[in-house]
Simulated scan of single mutants.
Amino acid sequence: MEKELLLQCLQKDRNAQRKVYEKMARKLHIVCKRYVNNDEDIEEVLADSFYRIFTKLDQLKDHEIFEAWARKITVNECLQKLRSMKALNISIEEDWVESKGIPTDSISFEKDILKLLNFLPEGCRTIFNLFAIEGYPHKEIAAMLSITEGTSKSQLNFARKKLQELLVNHNI
């Protein structure tokens, strides 16, 4: 992100904030969608994320890491939303596949994988996102979610196995 644009945002310039929003909204929306399923909740988390980004911008020390910083704020907002909905259920549900209808439309492989993530139980999907996509280590995930590292690892393993099953069973 351009340093000049961020400096204008620090001065509460609405046009600069709009430009930052336009540049980042799509990327951060995709992050939200990996954690939260409901479109209204996604929009709420996205709005909360941008509010936090613009109000905490003075804490950013290096404009070159703005995108990663904004992404981290968005992930934290998603986790906060999940906690508030009490939807973060860290448990393995044996019948989770049977209770879900898997979409059969074929699009790109990456989009199919992201779509399949929605069919994982909330807890292991969240851990998979944090570890495999966001790059957080198990120790940090455990601290963020108030679980043990072992639980984080077992949920990641469960998510990977179920994703492999879905990929094989549905020829994706």
Rank of each mutant, 00 (worst) to 15 (best):
E2W: 00
E2D: 14
L5W: 01
L6R: 10
L6A: 09
L7M: 12
L7T: 06
C9T: 08
Q11V: 03
D13H: 07
A16C: 08
Q17T: 03
V20E: 04
K23L: 13
M24R: 04
M24A: 06
M24W: 00
M24N: 05
K27P: 01
K27I: 14
K27Y: 06
K27T: 13
L28I: 10
H29S: 10
I30M: 00
I30G: 00
K33W: 07
R34K: 08
R34M: 10
R34F: 08
Y35K: 02
D41F: 05
D41P: 01
I42G: 00
E44W: 01
E44Y: 06
L46S: 06
A47S: 12
D48K: 15
F50G: 04
Y51P: 00
Y51Q: 04
F54T: 05
F54D: 02
T55Y: 11
T55H: 11
K56N: 13
K56H: 14
L57A: 06
D58H: 13
Q59S: 09
L60K: 02
K61Y: 01
D62V: 04
D62W: 02
D62N: 13
E64P: 01
E64W: 04
I65L: 03
I65P: 00
F66L: 03
A68H: 10
A68P: 00
W69Y: 10
R71T: 12
I73M: 12
T74W: 04
T74R: 07
V75R: 11
N76C: 07
C78L: 11
L79A: 01
L79G: 01
Q80K: 14
Q80E: 00
K81W: 12
M85Q: 15
L88G: 08
N89Q: 09
N89K: 11
N89I: 08
N89V: 08
S91I: 08
I92T: 11
E94M: 03
D95S: 11
E98K: 13
E98W: 09
S99D: 07
K100G: 01
I102K: 02
T104Y: 04
T104C: 03
S106F: 01
S106L: 05
I107Y: 08
S108T: 15
E110D: 11
K111D: 13
D112M: 13
I113S: 07
I113T: 10
K115W: 00
K115T: 09
K115A: 01
L116G: 07
L116S: 13
L116E: 07
L117E: 08
P121N: 10
E122L: 12
G123E: 05
R125Y: 12
T126L: 04
N129W: 01
L130W: 02
F131A: 15
A132P: 00
A132E: 15
E134T: 05
E134Q: 14
E134V: 06
G135T: 10
Y136M: 15
Y136E: 15
Y136K: 15
A142K: 12
A143V: 08
A143M: 07
L145W: 07
L145S: 02
S146T: 11
S146V: 09
S146W: 03
T151G: 04
T151D: 10
S152I: 08
S154V: 12
Q155E: 11
Q155Y: 15
F158K: 05
R160Y: 05
L163C: 09
Q164I: 12
N169H: 12
H170A: 05
N171I: 13
